[in-house]
């Protein structure tokens, strides 16, 4: 057995007319990892997730959860999964507590009263848990959704578009929960079309387009500043000195001017370790510098490169 919580190999879904909405998808997920499925609407993210949790049948390929094959041991696989598929849904005519009791009962006796109160306090719903779910705000429902998903201590959490309809505070809270859970060793597979969210939330992202994997990126390298990393650096200088700055910078080797659109701004591609050197050159050239900002090579830029710009419009 490998250390992977989830292995997806050659996953394919063909719908009526032979159209492949998921086409030969393969990726692995390590234990304790937060993996994002990223792609524009219609890329096949939701279909992929539904096949993994067993809501949809797959046409081809295999899914292995915790070393068990989904086809052969579906029930055992699902026992290890906690899921929110799209918006979490509840029996709204019942209280949050009663809902959790229902879901807990389905976990085969492993969910005790203590576990329920533990989870309720984790998602900070103690005050509202006796109220009927129909009175809950969307953010509270989302939190209750997280509660029902983690109630039975699954080793794999699967969230489909979990940030849909959440306000920024709710998104931030969700992100924090996921990070806490990851620290406890619970792996999370999350799908979204929101780039910035995925960037903050995930360790790695699988970028999908038209049912295929087009890239798998390790976000820790994108997020952290390695000294040798190529970064985009934007310099703002006194108005009218843009040209002069460009000339001054041209003496530096391995620094390229990415764009020079306004007369007081300059965008460069360069190694992060060269920034102090850049600063010295500019000062020596007598240029008034208002700011030097290093912008990370963001997921968005990568995503745009990969999906050739077109997808971004759809995604937003």
């Amino acid at each position: 057995m490998s250390g992977n919580i989830l292995e997806v190999s050659g996953l394919t879904k063909t719908v009526g007319g032979g159209k492949k909405i998921v086409d030969g998808l393969s990726f692995d997920m390590k234990k304790g990892e937060i993996l994002g499925l990223l792609g524009p609407n219609g890329a096949g993210k939701t279909t992929t997730i539904r096949m993994i949790v067993g809501l949809m049948s797959k046409t081809d390929g295999s899914v292995t959860i915790n070393g068990r094959d989904l086809d052969e041991q579906g029930k055992a696989c699902r026992a290890n999964i906690g899921a929110i598929v799209e918006n979490p849904t509840f029996y709204e005519y019942m209280s949050g507590y009663k809902n959790l009791k229902l879901w807990g009962r389905m976990a085969g006796g492993s969910v005790t009263e203590e576990r329920i109160s533990e989870v309720v306090s984790l998602v900070k719903l103690e005050d509202a848990i006796k109220d009927k779910v129909k009175k809950y705000s969307l953010g509270m429902k989302q939190r209750l959704g997280v509660a029902q998903a983690i109630l039975h201590r699954p080793s794999l959490l699967i969230l489909d578009e979990p940030t849909n309809g959440l306000d920024p505070k709710g998104i931030r809270e969700l992100r924090d929960y996921l990070r806490e859970l990851a620290d406890e060793g619970i792996s999370t597979l999350v799908s979204s079309h929101l780039l910035s969210e995925m960037q903050l939330m995930c360790d790695r992202v699988v970028i999908m387009e038209k049912g295929k994997v087009i890239d798998i990126s390790d976000l820790s390298s994108l997020n952290a500043y390695g000294d040798k990393d190529q970064v985009a650096v934007s310099i703002s200088v006194k108005k009218g000195q843009g040209e002069a700055a460009k000339t001054a910078v041209s003496v530096l080797e391995e620094v390229t001017v990415a764009s020079h659109e306004t007369e007081n701004e300059l965008l460069l591609d360069m190694g992060r370790d060269r920034i102090p050197e850049l600063n010295r050159v500019l000062v020596k050239a007598g240029i008034d510098v208002f700011g030097i900002e290093s912008k990370r090579t963001s997921l968005e830029e990568k995503f745009l490169q990969l999906t050739s710009g077109k997808a971004d419009k759809e995604a937003n």
Partner: peptide, 14 residues
Amino acid sequence: DKGTLKHLFVRPYE
């Protein structure tokens, strides 16, 4: 219609 069926289906039951 309420969407709760999908949350039943992801439980360890047939």
